[in-house]
């Protein structure tokens, strides 16, 4: 019995120890980003263009570039995701087909992002002749976040109570009216959370856009369809390779902190909306 107790104590100790270790590592990472990034932050850092290859000046256009790419991707993706969800829920009746459809979307989610960059460039950059440009980046990211949006919206549409639709039909609503009056409003939370998460995913992505959408210098805002942009992600990548230069590192951490803030705001908003939903569901 004593040995059992000892064993219990020891394993509990190990459990707490390992968890604390893991938590500590993650905490150290966040603290590092904040303490290293904070000194770089200032109004001028946020709102000035970068100078001297990113060693001086700010990250204004980099931030804008990240926002353009992620917002563009979400805008392009949303109608397709919404349509494909409705296709899946309203049009596909056979369970086998639904299953295959699910599987295809699921596989898309697992594809390593660098592959989206490779094939995406081939399609959008070469075939559509968009070249290395923000349009190519937007389209590649749109494909990348499609599964994220799809499943959030799907979940929401799937859980609309049957009698809502029946009520709509009984009122003699046309398909278009049915969609406007019942399906869209009732799945709004799925659309919003899906879009927010998609935005967060697009904002954090570097590999898929680094050789397809961005340029190193001379870029402010895209002035035509085939202009490249500059983004926080690729800016950090360039500065990180100058890791022996303290100026470069400070600005890299500053840009990193801004990027992290964008991603965290988006995810927190999602969590917040969802927590409200979960509490309501419990009631």
């Amino acid at each position: 019995m004593n040995r059992r107790l000892l064993k219990e104590r020891l394993s509990m100790f190990a459990l707490y120890g390992l968890t604390a270790g893991g938590g500590l590592i993650l905490a150290v990472i966040l603290i590092t980003v904040f303490t290293k990034g904070a000194p770089a932050l200032s109004v001028s850092f946020l709102f000035e263009a970068s100078r001297n290859f990113g060693l001086e000046g700010g990250i204004f256009y980099q931030t804008l570039g990240t926002l353009i790419l992620m917002a563009g991707a979400a805008l392009v993706c949303l109608p397709v995701a919404l349509g494909s969800v409705l296709f899946q829920t309203e049009f596909l009746h056979s369970p086998q087909l639904k299953k295959i459809f699910r599987l295809l979307i699921y596989s898309l989610n697992a594809v390593p992002t660098i592959i989206f960059g490779l094939i995406g460039y081939l399609f959008f950059g070469v075939f559509l002749e968009a070249g290395v440009s923000w349009v190519t980046g937007v389209l590649i990211l749109a494909v990348m976040i499609l599964p994220t949006l799809h499943v959030s919206i799907h979940e929401a549409v799937e859980t609309i109570p049957k009698h809502y639709r029946e009520a709509g039909l009984a009122l003699g609503l046309s398909p278009g009216q049915q969609m406007r009056a019942v399906i869209l409003p009732q799945s709004l939370h799925g659309i919003v959370t899906g879009t927010l998460l998609g935005l967060a995913r697009a904002a954090g992505e570097t590999a898929a856009i680094m050789f397809t959408a961005t340029a190193f210098s001379g870029v402010d805002l895209p002035q035509s369809w085939t202009d490249p942009v500059t983004t926080l992600q690729t800016h950090i990548l360039v500065l990180a390779q100058e890791a022996a230069n303290p100026e470069a590192l400070t600005n890299a951490w500053g840009a990193g902190l801004v990027l992290l803030a964008i991603v965290f705001i988006l995810i927190t908003a999602t969590l917040w909306i969802r927590s409200g939903l979960e509490m309501e569901a419990e009631r």
Binding site: P79, V80, A81, L82, G83, S84, L86, F87, Q88, E90, F91, L92, I100, F101, L104, I105, S107, L108, V111, I115, F116, I119, L122, F123, V143, L146, H150, P175, G176, M179
Partner: peptide, 23 residues
């Protein structure tokens, strides 16, 4: 609505197929 969702559905499901085929 049918054509929109149909097109979107084909695009969403077709992407992975095209991706694999291109690879």
């Amino acid at each position: 609505v049918f054509w929109w969702t149909g097109l979107a559905g084909v695009m969403a499901a077709g992407t992975i197929v095209i991706l694999f085929a291109s690879l």
